[in-house]
């Protein structure tokens, strides 16, 4: 465990020092700050637009950070040959992989926490309803986004064990886009009476097996508070467990592949 924590801590330090990540983070924060000014462009209620836009900025920025942070993690270690130094010590490959992943998740958590703090502050300044409940409601979505991004990081770590960073970037990005579409796409197929049963069954299998990022897009009732939601906490718990299970699957698969890989 000590080895894992030590690798994770080092990874956090490296991540914080990476300029490209800091620039992406800075851009995200800047957008969050100017977001209230952009609300006037829209005929829609400014609060609704503000909520939607700020959550969108956090989600998009976090996804870019998660991918950029993770795709280079293991290939860089191999390319710079620093991995030999680490693996020559009493550190197993699986410990290295998990340590790297946890480091990435911690770094991501730190950056997302910063963006969420800015979101809460800006929203508190702008919103007509400044109650703790209203502002607190805004934090729910970033919390779920954090689980989503942790899953995304796991996808990237898994791919990084056997593909080059550039390929990994597009693979992970593609998985994220597809995964975000699964639920609406599956729903459309299920409800469309003209769809062939085989297609429906195939879509059902894909929707069940592949990582489903759409589950974490919980922003709609936050943006439109009139919507009635049943058992919100239970849903959050379910998707968190789903995320943990899936991260587990990806890490196990990653460990198995990385274990056989020649470095």
């Amino acid at each position: 465990m000590r080895q894992i924590l030590s690798i994770a801590t080092t990874t956090v330090g490296e991540a914080i020092r990476r300029r490209v990540l800091l620039i992406i983070l800075l851009i995200g924060v800047l957008f969050l700050v100017v977001a209230p000014g952009l609300g006037v462009l829209s005929a829609r209620s400014e609060t609704v637009v503000l909520r939607g836009m700020m959550l969108g900025i956090i989600q998009l920025t976090s996804a870019v950070i998660a991918i950029v942070l993770t795709v280079y993690m293991i290939p860089n270690e191999i390319e710079r040959r620093t991995i030999y130094t680490i693996l020559s010590k009493p550190v197993q490959r699986w410990q290295f992989l998990i340590g790297k992943y946890l480091g990435a998740v911690f770094s991501l958590g730190l950056m997302m926490a910063l963006m969420t703090a800015v979101l809460v502050f800006v929203f508190w300044l702008q919103a007509s309803d400044q109650s703790l409940a209203a502002v607190g409601a805004m934090v729910k979505a970033p919390t779920m986004y954090f689980v989503q991004m942790s899953l995304l990081a796991a996808v990237a770590i898994f791919f990084s064990t056997f593909v080059a960073p550039l390929v990994n970037f597009f693979l992970t990005g593609g998985m994220y886009l597809l995964g975000s579409l699964f639920n609406p796409f599956f729903q459309t197929l299920q409800e469309n009476q003209g769809t062939h049963p085989v297609t429906k069954a195939f879509a059902g299998i894909v929707n069940t097996i592949l990582p489903n990022f759409a589950n974490y897009n919980v922003q709609n009732p936050i943006i439109n508070p009139t919507q009635v939601i049943q058992n919100e906490s239970r849903y959050y718990l379910e998707v968190t467990f789903y995320g943990l299970f899936y991260i587990g699957i990806l890490l196990v698969a990653g460990i198995l592949i990385f274990d056989r890989r020649e470095v």
Partner: peptide, 18 residues
């Protein structure tokens, strides 16, 4: 993960979060 997605998450997502 598959069971959770199919039996619990997807029906709730369709009803409340879509």
């Amino acid at each position: 993960a598959g069971l959770l997605q199919r039996l619990a998450i997807y029906p709730t997502w369709t009803r409340d979060y879509n």
